[in-house]
Design a protein around this nucleic acid. Structure first.
Lengths: 140, 140
DNA sequence: CAAACTGATACTATATTGGTGTCAGTAAAA
DNA sequence: TTTTACTGACACCAATATAGTATCAGTTTG
């Protein structure tokens, strides 16, 4: 059970870094170095985020990435959606057909409930949250 | 975000089926047919469950599988552990080292909280639960 | 012995995840 | 105007996880 994959993790770290430089374009090279993320891989992640309007980019020397919207408006679920597909619920394996085993329907119903809760929790986390709660806090 | 993988799902369905036949050995062939699970694949799943003492088996004609303990004592987390590895928490990527980015530690802390909640919820579901709540309930 | 089972294990296929490499284009600045 | 530091766009590869197959030996019942 892994809620976040590595690319989501990388992406969040990149976003936080970019957010910290409020407005100033941050090049992928810098993020890669400071966050120890493979450069070429990070490039792709950032491009994906840009495609989804989470980031904006400026080309050429001195270019880089800036946030596409306010940190408080970039949710963890947004990032997860980009890299882990729909942050969404286990669909009933027998959707169309008649569910021929009630027990497993009960299971699926329960799982769905849990997933909904998780989703709610995740939606409470934004890049903004991470930035704010960082101030004056102890390390892991 | 997929809480359950297909093999866990298969396994749970098999367990429920076995539970329903209270005590009588249930052959893999029957489960495979009724639950539409690939026979050879199911065989392996059942063997894994037996290795983990979730099931017990009797060989030979008329043999099959019975529960290794009471339905109420077989938890979803048990099954998940067998097939999806430790139902456990995202570990800090910088465990030993000093966490050099507080924001991501905040993230990890939050994720950990969510995972703990999920774990708690999952622990509330057993084969027994699924059996009981099945009675007289509507389909999906 | 035949039939109906499990035990064990090796193999294959497919999808997902993580990572690399290359080349073209753009903007700043020497 | 050339060099430098960037992004854009892809094609490709490797590792791992997930799902599924195949085979053969051994056990129990009848």
């Amino acid at each position: 059970m892994k809620l976040l994959t590595k690319n989501t993790d990388y992406a969040v770290r990149a976003l936080v870094k970019i957010a910290q430089r409020a407005g100033e374009p941050v090049p992928a090279s810098l993020i890669a170095k400071e966050e120890r993320i493979p450069y070429a891989y990070l490039r792709r992640l950032l491009n994906d985020l840009r495609d989804r309007k989470v980031l904006r980019s400026t080309e050429g020397k001195g270019g880089g990435f800036v946030l596409g919207r306010k940190p408080e408006e970039i949710f963890l679920t947004d990032v997860m959606e980009v890299f882990q597909g729909e942050v969404n619920l286990t669909e009933c394996m027998f959707r169309q057909k008649i569910c021929h085993n009630r027990s497993t329907c009960v299971l699926r119903h329960k799982i769905r409930e849990i997933e909904k809760k998780v989703l709610g929790d995740l939606e409470g986390i934004s890049i903004g949250t991470l930035l704010n709660e960082t101030k004056g806090q102890k390390n892991d």
